[in-house]
Design a protein around this nucleic acid. Structure first.
Lengths: 164, 164
DNA sequence: CTTGGAAAGTCAACAAGGCTGACGTAAATT
DNA sequence: AATTTACGTCAGCCTTGTTGACTTTCCAAG
């Protein structure tokens, strides 16, 4: 067996193991988005709306700039989504008091309800997967995902982790 | 602390833990696709072409129907992608000998080259993440992802795992 | 041998959700 | 007063997904 100088087994780094991980990510991400997608189809919303709703719920009062940084899309793209959410009364946008150029975003009660429905579905799947795999597996899961992020995204992720 | 009758700690199943997992999936998937996306931008190809190339490489001689089942898109959508890959000489499509309605798909040498470039990039990131997290974490990572898949997708995934 | 149905491909039209570029406005900063 | 920042918006483009309708090819069952 392949061993490091330190005696560690390196078989988990073979191309074959990496390929399995790649395919697991592909298939799992489909499952990950499947339930919210199902809920949203038929409404006029899509995955982009879900993401906006999620992060506004996560950081109430966040600004458009913040959201842009987290979502990694252009303001035009985000604005299209945000506009419909505001028009439909799911999101409230209010001028900042300290800096009036900024818009602070909140979910309305209606927005909270949809957020709840979406995240309940997504959490149910996640909970089932966590339960099936067990706490140790979950710790590993999170470690690998975190190591897979771009540094900038890891910063965003950790900021959310702490802030919440 | 919350304990099961069996004495197992259940804190890893709190909504907060689940939310972290959800956000980790979101940010990690961005990293996961970032490198191939970068390579493909500027070529006339996108993520859809990458997926087709990956699974044709993975199962040489696979049929269009097989590919449809794995990728989970419509034949029209796949066909658009496949057509450009065939026109550009990356993929070879040949009539089945036993059933001539089927088309068996193979990568050409040119296709192999692009596949190599893409998967090298993707594996490099995955390898770095695996190495950083260690073998135990990797095992957990795979367990959770597998549990997260839809049953049908898990079947596809396991079929690939064994077959390769 | 004919015919029904499956597999594959094609055309057309459309939608979501990315993107760029250009421009406008209000507010803050210098 | 001039510049920069935050945000919104218009216009147009691309990729990649969708449906629906249709044809061709071919296997297999009647």
């Amino acid at each position: 067996m392949a061993e490091t100088p330190g005696g560690e087994n390196l078989l988990f780094l073979t191309d074959e193991q990496l390929r399995k991980g790649i395919e697991a990510m592909f298939f799992a991400y489909r499952g990950f988005t499947a339930d919210p997608d199902r809920i949203l189809e038929g409404m006029d919303y899509g995955r982009a709306h879900h993401r906006a709703i999620h992060f506004i719920h996560r950081s109430p009062g966040t600004t458009v700039s913040n959201l842009l940084a987290i979502l990694g899309v252009t303001k035009q793209s985000l604005n299209r989504v945000l506009r419909t959410l505001i028009e439909d009364g799911l999101v409230r946008s209010e001028k900042g008091k300290v800096d009036a150029r900024e818009r602070h975003l909140h979910l309305t009660d209606k927005g909270q309800m949809l957020e709840r429905e979406l995240s309940d579905a997504q959490r149910a799947r996640m909970r089932a997967a966590y339960r099936a795999a067990g706490p140790q597996a979950v710790a590993g899961f999170r470690q690998v995902l975190e190591a897979m992020m771009d540094p900038e995204m890891r910063r965003q992720y950790n900021r959310l982790k702490e802030g919440g």
